[in-house]
Design a protein around this nucleic acid. Structure first.
Lengths: 189, 189
DNA sequence: CGAGGTCTTGAACATATGTTCAAGCTCGGC
DNA sequence: GCCGAGCTTGAACATATGTTCAAGACCTCG
C-alpha cells in the first residue's frame, strides 16, 4: 500500500464527490463516476453510504465544518487583527479559486433544489453569520449584539457577491475593492 | 382552442423548462418532465428542439434577453432617475422572488458545469455590465468610461450578493441597506 | 372533397443510473 | 493454519432518461 496516499477509501469517496460536484455539478455526480474518480469499485460506495442522498449529506456536513474554520480566529491575535484576518481569508488564494467557488455554487443550487439539503445549508450559513458577528463584537465591544449581527449581514452580502462574481470572471481589482468595503462596514464608527 | 391560454406550444415548452429549472435544478429537467409540465406529448419537445442541449440553449438565450431589459431605461426619465430606477429594479418584487432567484442560481451552476452554456452566460453578463456602465455614464457625464465600468463592477458585486443572499434567507433589511450601498457607489463624487 | 404540409402523439429502443448481492479478499487473533 | 469479521469487487436487476419514428390529427389551398 502506497504510504500516505492510498489512505482511507471512505474519505477518498467523499473527495471524489467534491471533485465531481465542483467540475460537473450534481448531474455529474453518479455512483459510477464517484467510484471511478475515487478509484474504488461501484459496490464500495454503497457499502459506506447506503444511498445517494446519504452520500451527498455526508459531503455537505464535511463542507460545513471546513466553512466554520473561516471564522475561527487565531486566538493569539488581537481582536482587530482576528476580524481583519477573517475578512481577508474569504478572498484568499485557497477560497478564491475556481474549483472551490464552483463547488460553493453547486452546493447552493443543490440546497435550492432539495429541501433536506437546504436545511443543512441554512444551518451552516447561520453558524457562519454568528461566527462573523462574534468576531465583530470582539473587535468593537462598544457595539450591541444586534448591531454586530447587522454588520455581519451586510458583510455577507458583499462576500457572497465577491464569490459569485469571481466565478463570472470579473476584474480582480473589483474583488480587492470589495474586500476593502467589507472592512469599512466592519470597522465603521 | 382556449383563447389566450392554449397558445404557442413551443413557447409553453420553454416556460416549462424555466419552471422545472427553478424548482428542481437541472437534474429535474428531463424531456418527460418538460412535456408533462408543458402539457404536450414527449415527442413534441424533440420536434421543436433537436436534443436536450438545444432546448437548454433556447432557454438561456430567452433569459439573456429579459435580463437586458433590467438595464434598459425608460427614455422619458432623467438620467439620474434612470440609473436609480435600474438599481432599484434588481431588488424589485419581480426579481427578488424565490422562483426567479432560484432560476438564476441554477443558471449560474449550469454555466459552471458546461462550457457551451458558460459562453452564453458570460456574454449576457458582459452586456449587463456594459448597460450598467452606460447608465452611470449618462447620469455622471464627468466620469471617464473606465471609471464608469469600475463602478459598474463594484455595483454588480453587491447586486449579485443581494441576489444570492436573498436565497439564503437573510434579513430583508440587509437587502435594503445593500441597495443604498449600490446607489452610494454609483453616485459617489 | 382531397392532397400536402405541419403539428402532435405515444410506443419502442438504447443507454445511463441507483441499488442489491453473492462471492472473494485481507488481516488480526487463536 | 484457519476462523471470522470487516472490506472490496463487479455482475445483475429495475428503473429512468434521451432519442427515434411510424402513425394520426389538423389545417390550408386548390
Amino acid at each position: 500500500m502506497n504510504p500516505g496516499e492510498q489512505v482511507d477509501r471512505q474519505s477518498r469517496i467523499l473527495d471524489a464527490v467534491l471533485e465531481l460536484l465542483s467540475r460537473h455539478g450534481i448531474s455529474g455526480v453518479n455512483m459510477r463516476a464517484v467510484a471511478r474518480e475515487a478509484g474504488v469499485a461501484l459496490g464500495l460506495v454503497n457499502y459506506y453510504y447506503a444511498d445517494k442522498p446519504s452520500l451527498i449529506r455526508a459531503v455537505l456536513n464535511r463542507i460545513g465544518e471546513s466553512d466554520m474554520r473561516l471564522v475561527t480566529p487565531d486566538p493569539e491575535a488581537h481582536p482587530d487583527e482576528q476580524l481583519r484576518e477573517a475578512l481577508r481569508r474569504v478572498a484568499g488564494p485557497e477560497i478564491l479559486t475556481t474549483p472551490y467557488l464552483s463547488l460553493r455554487l453547486h452546493l447552493w443550487a443543490l440546497a435550492q433544489a432539495d429541501e433536506d439539503f437546504a436545511v443543512i445549508n441554512a444551518e451552516a450559513f447561520d453558524q457562519y453569520l454568528d461566527g462573523l458577528a462574534t468576531l465583530i463584537g470582539n473587535a468593537k465591544p462598544e457595539l450591541s449584539r444586534e448591531a454586530c449581527k447587522q454588520r455581519a449581514d451586510d458583510i455577507v452580502v458583499v462576500q457572497n457577491g465577491m464569490w459569485l462574481t469571481s466565478l463570472l470572471g470579473i476584474d480582480k481589482a473589483a474583488i480587492q475593492r470589495s474586500i476593502a468595503r467589507t472592512e469599512q462596514i466592519a470597522f465603521a464608527d
